[in-house]
Structures are given as C-alpha cells and as structure tokens.
Design a protein around this nucleic acid. Structure first.
Length: 420
DNA sequence: TCTGGGGTCCTAGGACCC
DNA sequence: TCTGGGGTCCTAGGACCC
C-alpha cells in the first residue's frame, strides 16, 4: 500500500501558521511578480477564485471580501516543507518527497486493518508539530492513492483520511472522480477522452489497452493499469539527478536596454552554477532565452534563444556567465520591450567525471577552490555578497513583491515576538 | 521493374506534473 | 499597468553510422 500525504492548500496554510487570525478567513498567495493566484484557502476557493487567476483582475473582489493576499515567500514554504517531511519520516523509512507539499509513503509492511488508524495518527502529528493540515489517501498504486487523497480532501474533510482497499470502494471512488482529475490526465487528453464519451475515471478503466496505447501512449497505458490496481510506478526514495536546470524570471518592469538584460542573464547563469555546485555536477551546454510580453498585443513581439556549448563541462560562475552573455549578444535586438530572460543548462554530469578539453589549460583546482570560497562566504554573509560584476548592483529588473510575509523561521530579524 | 537492414544521437514539439 | 517558475517523459523525424 502507498499513502499519499498532501498538505492542504499548502502556501496558504503556511501563511496561517504564524498568523492564526487568518484561520477561517479567505487567503490567497500570488506567484512571482504578484502575477497569478497560485494557492487558495478553502474559503477563497468557495468564493470562486480560480487557480491561476491574474491578480489584477481580482483586486476589487479581494478588497470587497477582505481576502488576505500574499506575495510568495519560498524561504518560509521551503522550511515548513522540510519540517513536515521530517515528521513523516518518523512514521516510515520508505518515503518519497514528491513535491514541496506531497510525499508518498510505502506502508506495505503495515497490517492492513490498522492502516486507517495509522494514517489518522500521521495526520494528527503533522498538524500538531508543524501547524500544517494534511490529507492522506492510501491504495495499492500511486495513481489510486492520488484518487484516495482527493476523495479524502473533497468528501471527508473532517476525517482527512481515505483508504481504498476493497474493489467495491475503489470503483465507487473512481466513479466519483472526473477523468480530468486523474493524475496523468491533463487538459488535452481529458478533451480527447470526453470526445469519445469517457467522463469518469471508472469509465476510463474499461477502455481497451491497445486503444489507450495508441492514443495516449505508454504514459496513458500506465495510468490505466495503475487505476486497475497494477503498480507501474514505484517509490523513488533517492531523487534522480536532474537532467536540466533552469533559472528565469519575469521582470517587474519592461526592459529595453542591453545592459540590464546582460545583468539579468549573468545573474541567472550564476544561479545555475550555484545549483550545479550544490549537487556536485557540471553542465556541457547552456541556453539563454529572451522574450517580450505576449499579453501586450500592441507591442512588437520577439522570442529567441541560443545554445552555447561549453568547451569543457563546468559549474564555474564566471565561465557560465561568459557563455550566457556570448549567447545573449547573438540574440539581442534593439527596439523591443523585454519581459523575461532565462538561462538553462543541460548535459549535466557528475563533477568527478569531466572530460577535459584538448586545447585548454587545466585550471580546475584553482577554479574549484575559488568557487568553494565564494559559496562559503555567501552562505555566511548572505546571497551575492561576493558576486560577478556583470551581475550589476541595482537590480532594476527585480521582481515585484509587495505583500511578502516575514521569513519567520529562517531569518533572525523576522522572528515572531510575543508580548505577554 | 527494381532500390537493405539495423542501429544511435539529437532536436523539436507536445503532453504532463507541482 | 498588472498574467509564474521549474521540471519530466514520449514521439517523430532527420542526420548520421556500419
């Protein structure tokens, strides 16, 4: 049996932990740049705020209904996520941290008649020790555990736990699940399936395997089998090494000049290098992209990207920033309002197994110790305390974040004070 | 009239997830 | 005026190899 533990309305719940006045009130959290709604409390959902809603369209509605609005605070969410995962790890050694707010637990070794109690205990402990409410669904496959979790969240809100074990119960839950709510079925396939008369997860399980294989490919077939109780996905306790790493941002204001774009691109390249060093790997290729704002239809639009091959795979900030700037120079065009740039690195391999370039003088040891020192200083003194000049110092392109809550758990100056 | 067979690697595009 | 960011997998097609 797999259990899926999913934090309820995670970002919204995080905002409430240190601000209990918001209990029972509508809360929404916005994406970077305060752009879209990416998390909603139940109250906000019930008021009809859709996922992904542009914040500016709902500004009045938020005001009229006293909705608490927050910019996203990833330092806070990341830290609370770690705490939740730590609590879960006490209940089983076999855990897969699937996303910032979800974990699969392998409960195969637990006697089946205790499962409901055991899950209820997990749920109680998490909320008591972290303040984050969770829902738990358990079943024989991951996809069915997802179904069970959704069922627990929607129909058993008070209990918050649902176990799918008997075929009768499974069929009932599958019938109550719309096809577009199945894990692995997105908008496009849901449309296709509805076109052929399939509306629920249960109806989907009755389809022929060949048809699914042909029209929704092997991923669809795996979903079908998982819903029938045949496990196709196992627990991934050790996250596989990343194949690509990307850092990109939309700008708070539109950018037209080359220098500012270059500063942003150098910053993102440096950030990618940090991420690579953190996982002890190097990248062989770097891609830089720029684009204008597609929502401003009156503006001339420009999307472009350029790949740069790194002669020797690297994770050294200045090498990568240099490559990114080389690429940017090739695609920069005057006369556009740029909205977003980004840097992506691929061809990722372990640091220890780098193939040296035939024509380059090996200066690995030196670069490595410089980077290690920079990382160490920045860890103690704060991000970008030591930085590349190319990154600039003004950050005129920075994010808009007007409603960010304090970093209650990761910054001394933001520590909550209580007056008695 | 006829034109081999069996591969790999890379990229782009489309689907999906949170 | 204002519309996020970071990933995965699969397939098809082209270029290449012997």
């Amino acid at each position: 049996m797999y259990a899926l533990v999913d934090c309820n309305n995670f970002y919204a719940s995080c905002e409430r932990v240190f601000n209990p006045k918001m209990e029972g009130k509508p809360v929404v959290v916005l994406s970077n740049n305060d752009g879209c709604v990416i998390a909603r409390s139940n109250e906000a959902k019930e008021m009809g705020v859709p996922m992904g809603a542009p914040a500016f369209e709902y500004e009045k509605m938020f005001e009229q209904n006293n909705v608490q609005v927050f910019s996203s605070n990833y330092a806070l969410y990341g830290d609370l996520s770690d705490r939740v995962m730590k609590v879960l790890s006490r209940f089983t050694p076999n855990i897969e941290m699937y996303s910032i707010d979800e974990a699969f637990l392998d409960l195969s070794n637990f006697p089946y008649h205790d499962l409901e109690k055991y899950c209820a205990n997990i749920r109680r402990t998490v909320i008591q020790e972290t303040g984050i409410p969770v829902s738990i669904g358990a079943a024989a496959t991951k996809t069915l555990a997802k179904v069970a979790n959704r069922y627990a969240k929607k129909r058993k809100r008070e209990i918050g736990v649902h176990i799918l074990n008997l075929q009768e119960e499974i069929n009932h839950a599958l019938t109550a699940t719309d096809i577009e709510d199945v894990w692995g079925v997105g908008g496009q396939y849901a449309k296709l399936l509805k076109g052929t008369g399939i509306r629920t997860a249960f109806e989907f399980t009755l389809l022929q395997e060949e048809w699914v294989r042909k029209n929704i490919h092997v991923t669809g077939l795996k979903t079908l089998l998982e819903l029938r109780g045949v496990p196709c996905y196992s627990l991934e306790q050790v996250p596989p090494a990343k194949q690509g790493i990307c850092t990109s941002r939309s700008f708070g204001t539109l950018v037209t000049d080359y220098t500012t774009l270059q500063e942003s691109v150098a910053t993102f390249a440096s950030r990618c290098s940090e991420k690579l060093r953190k996982q002890h790997s190097v990248a062989a290729m770097l891609q830089v992209f720029v684009h204008t704002n597609p929502f401003r239809e009156q503006d001339p639009q420009y999307f472009n990207s350029k790949s740069v091959i790194l002669s020797t795979p690297t994770n050294v900030s200045y090498d990568m920033a240099k490559a990114a700037i080389t690429g940017l120079k090739m695609i920069y065009r005057k006369g556009y309002n740029y909205k977003k740039t980004g840097v992506m690195v691929t061809g990722i391999t372990p640091e220890q197994s780098v193939q040296l370039s035939m024509f380059e003088h090996p200066k690995f040891a030196k670069n490595k110790s410089v980077m290690q020192s920079v990382d160490r200083i920045n860890k103690i003194m704060g991000r970008d305390k030591v930085r590349l000049t190319a990154m600039g110092f003004d950050r005129t392109w920075k994010l808009r974040q007007e409603k960010k809550s304090p970093c209650y758990t990761t910054r001394w100056s933001d520590l909550l004070t209580i007056q008695v």
